[in-house]
Design a protein around this nucleic acid. Structure first.
Lengths: 204, 204
DNA sequence: CGGGGCGGTGTTCAAGCGAAAAGATTTTGC
DNA sequence: GCAAAATCTTTTCGCTTGAACACCGCCCCG
């Protein structure tokens, strides 16, 4: 059930949200006053009181700028997962190490540990299509040792690809989830860069 | 390039993060003082100054509790997308309207408009497997009119399913992306509850 | 061995800021 | 139509809080 807000109260909430997003801190009552052109700071106070009564915000009495949206509190920890370019899931190609933005999401909801080294890559190609990983998907990877059957980003013979990590007869190798692509047997080295923990697809 | 922090400075940062997550506001210098058992508030001050010098935090001079992590600022808007139970992508079943938690993520990164009515559903079944939507995936839907070829959650003849929205000869109907499942031709009503905008998969 | 960064203590000051008391006017909901 | 909200103004008070100054011991590094 949504609380009913007046127009003015919606404006106040919108200003609070904007201020929080742009400056990082909540406005003081006097900042609210000046923003809306009030002649007195008490006007802002009473609006905050009204919003608190309706449960839209919570305040910590006596503390400065202590306005919180309750929904923001029971949110888990939000982490910025950097996107390190794209990765070939088709033909083996070099993966660029440049950071190309990041995605922010609630990592506890995904079961990602806080101190895990996590990063994301855009998938290029369709060699993992039978694992339902498509061209253009963003995969979120965690740096750790892989288990059999994990999908991994691996540096095999100098190039990075996304493949399934398979062990047969004690020998690890990489398998594409697409019959058109061959298995990759490491000639010398098989360096695992990350294990897939989540996938994010963005409908066009 | 990561700035080098001393142990004490790491503790301070950790406390700032904890305070921000649990109380919703940044601690004042005196709160930092008491938490660490400092005899003077200046100790907290100098730590904050050091952290600012190293670029870990930013401060707004003269303002109370005005400590921000720069990374949190250039993040887009984070929204809590409620999860309304699960949805059948196989056999048609009722979708429960109960809210079962939510996921928080940066919606601008996904191209979701701010005032869009967005919600999420867990996928049950494999009738959309050829569209690479698996059992257990979480689909994020936006309430709007569907276009041809969109994947939609639809209420068809009293039950909710996830299917592709297809129009042929001017007549809309729903198609499963799995040859084992038949098309669904609406007998009376075809109510679209949401259009797929994103998908989140969580590796076990 | 001398300087600089780190990690503090003690004190003082002024601005920042929430809060309360006492109205006034308008809108809204039974 | 009346009471309860909503939306403000003026004024005053006092805790909260950032900030500055002076000073101390420690350890590392060249």
């Amino acid at each position: 059930m949504q609380p009913i807000l007046t127009n003015r109260q919606k404006q106040i909430v919108e200003y609070l949200r904007m201020s929080q997003r742009e400056t990082g801190v909540m406005p003081s009552t006097r900042e609210i006053q000046h923003y809306f052109g009030f002649a007195s700071q008490t006007a802002a106070m009473s609006h905050l009181r009204a919003l608190e009564r309706k449960g839209v915000i919570q305040r910590l009495p006596g503390k400065a700028r202590a306005v919180v949206f309750p929904g923001d509190l029971d949110r888990g920890e939000i982490a910025d997962i950097p996107i390190y370019g794209s990765i070939a899931a088709g033909m083996a190609q070099d993966a660029e190490p440049e950071r190309e933005g990041s995605i922010a999401l609630d990592i506890t909801a995904l079961g990602i540990r806080h101190n895990a080294r996590t990063f994301a890559l855009k998938v290029r190609g369709d060699s993992m299509i039978d694992a339902h990983i498509c061209n253009g998907d963003t995969v979120i990877l965690e740096f750790r040792q892989p288990r059999k059957g994990d999908i991994v980003a691996a540096l095999i013979d100098g190039e990075t690809t996304l493949k399934r990590y398979v062990v047969e007869k004690g020998k690890p190798f990489l398998r594409a989830e697409n019959p058109d692509y061959p298995d990759l047997i490491p000639a010398r080295e098989l360096v695992i860069q990350g294990v897939l923990v989540a996938l994010l697809r963005h409908a066009a």
